[in-house]
């Protein structure tokens, strides 16, 4: 539920129907059920998905930097392992670079990550285990992009409004993260996380992620525009999704073969 990139990336018809059914029957009270549904709505929609992503990073001085990439996602199991394939278009100096992740849902296992550098024809394994580092220099973190294991936090339902559930999440291993807790506002109908607010050790709000625009695509609620704000640095990143498609039957492209030469669906 913590990431938005997954949000736009698919929802299976089965899940959607389950979600709506639950929403019709009055508010849920079991926080584990809520965070599970939100996690699936945010990261596991459909069996696979594709989107063109544009990031606009604006620093406190107003200087803009842009990132454009195509992302392919395929689930191994709903709520479990996933593969991601990210093909960069902009900025020009990273064009055709590919970033690939085999995401492990098991907390005890690190994700496997690869980077392909086309000018050297080099397939590099990335030795990065810290998921709370910036993704491509934006205000989004790796964990925002590929998801944070539900087991990492203890969850508490602190408020239920007419439209939302508000869940407070406290890390079980606070030494591994920079926040002391965060809250997530989850849409009661769609289970799409609409707002996340991160608090530091002084209890001060320092980071927010908002779903600015949600569209229904192939019948699935999809975040097509989200903004992260770093209140400490004054930097913001706008992430926009276009050409979102679900269940496109992505093949087994998460291998060295396709790192070296991306599949057509990633390039076009």
């Amino acid at each position: 539920m913590k990431t938005l990139m997954g949000l736009m990336l698919a929802v299976s018809a089965v899940f959607a129907s389950v979600l709506y059914a639950a929403a019709d029957g009055g508010p849920l009270t079991d926080v584990d059920v809520i965070v599970n549904k939100a996690n699936l709505a945010a990261y596991y929609q459909g069996d696979d998905g594709k989107a063109s992503v544009k990031m606009t990073i604006t620093d406190s001085k107003g200087q803009e930097r842009n990132r454009e990439f195509t992302i392919l996602r395929k689930d191994i199991a709903d709520g479990g392992d996933q593969n991601y394939f990210v093909y960069f278009d902009r900025p020009a100096d990273v064009r055709r670079m590919v970033f690939m992740v085999h995401k492990r849902a098991d907390m005890s296992k690190d994700d496997d990550r690869w980077l392909y550098l086309p000018s050297l024809d080099l397939v590099r394994r990335i030795a990065a285990s810290d998921k709370r580092t910036s993704f491509v220099g934006s205000d989004f973190l790796y964990e925002d992009v590929s998801g944070r294991s539900l087991e990492e936090d203890s969850h508490e339902l602190i408020e239920t409004t007419d439209t939302s559930y508000v869940v407070k999440n406290v890390p079980k291993r606070p030494e591994t993260v920079e926040f002391s807790y965060y809250t997530v506002t989850i849409d009661r109908k769609t289970f799409v996380p609409m707002k996340m607010e991160y608090y530091d050790t002084n209890g001060r709000l320092y980071r927010t992620i908002e779903s600015v625009e949600v569209k229904e695509i192939q019948g699935f609620p999809t975040v097509v525009k989200s903004v992260v704000k770093n209140l400490n640095s004054g930097s913001t990143t706008l992430m926009e999704f276009a050409n979102v498609q679900y269940n496109i039957k992505v093949g087994d492209v998460f291998t060295e073969r396709y790192l070296r030469r991306p599949p057509r669906e990633a390039i076009r």
Partner: peptide, 10 residues
């Protein structure tokens, strides 16, 4: 080449 501990060994 593969994961070794927290990093990558080869």
């Amino acid at each position: 080449r593969g994961a070794v501990g927290k990093g990558i060994g080869n």
